[in-house]
Amino acid sequence: MIQSQQHIKYLIVEDERLAYEELKRMISKLRPEYIFSERTETVEQTISFLRNNKVDLIMLDIRLADGDCFEIFNHVSVSTPVIFTTAYDEHAVQAFKLNSIDYLLKPIEENDLRDALIKYEQFYQSKQTSFDYRQLGEVITQKVKSRFLIQKGDSYFYIEAKDIAFFYSEDKAVFLHSFDNKRYIIDYTLDELEKLLGKSIFFRASRNCITNIKAIRDISKYFNSRLKLSFQPECPHEILVSRIRVADFLKWVDGIV
């Protein structure tokens, strides 16, 4: 615990009354020495408050009555540690972990809140640098493609992104290769796909291949500081990670996006 814990002032940004009351109740129970400063309900109210007041911790809901909370960071510089409350999916979770103190999935559990407060206190005590919340907003609001429409003859069906093993280019065409070992031509370039796919799951391993992390069966060192990948299901082409991509690729495999 931090020595000056009794002086910590916190702001709750939450537009749902019951959610606000429950969060405040749990904080009061877990940290009765914390000082409640204010509750704001909108982007506009929060910007106004932060321009004129200082707090030590912000409990910030993502969706507010008048828009996305990340709009706040475009109008006021925020160096205060933030714990986000959210219902976002797996794509966003990694971004929250890298760019904030913590995130709490609604409905908030008391044990999760306790862990987040402990993490905040450890951060506060170590005087680490602040996070880039504007960058986090760009990551979270980025559109991620979750499925692909496939045409087969006169019929249409879709394939979930999680069921795709890899994409590769061949003879000026781009193929989607599914985990059930079927392939389909799709009307996207690999450059377009690289921007649309969730970065925690997919990686541009080479000029002609984007792979799902779950499709990689083996990674081995190869000539000239490259890496050779083996897939399950098998890819019809040899896939080599170039020397300049190796560091980013290994970070991605290690879960650092």
Rank of each mutant, 00 (worst) to 15 (best):
L18G: 03
Y20R: 01
Y20S: 12
R25W: 10
M26L: 09
M26I: 00
M26C: 06
I27V: 09
S28W: 01
S28H: 12
S28K: 13
K29A: 14
K29R: 14
L30P: 05
E33L: 02
Y34R: 03
F36D: 10
S37N: 12
E41W: 00
T46M: 03
T46N: 04
T46S: 11
I47A: 08
L50T: 01
N52E: 00
N53Q: 03
N53S: 03
M59D: 04
M59P: 07
L60H: 12
D61P: 03
I62Q: 14
I62F: 07
A65I: 00
D66W: 08
G67Y: 07
G67E: 01
D68I: 00
C69V: 09
E71C: 08
F73L: 05
N74S: 15
N74D: 15
V76H: 03
V78W: 07
T80E: 01
P81E: 04
P81S: 06
V82S: 08
F84H: 10
F84T: 06
T86N: 02
A87C: 11
Y88D: 13
V93W: 14
Q94C: 14
K97V: 09
K97F: 12
K97R: 15
S100R: 02
I101M: 01
I101P: 08
Y103N: 09
L104A: 08
L105E: 09
E109M: 13
E110Y: 06
E110F: 00
R114E: 14
L117D: 11
I118K: 15
K119F: 01
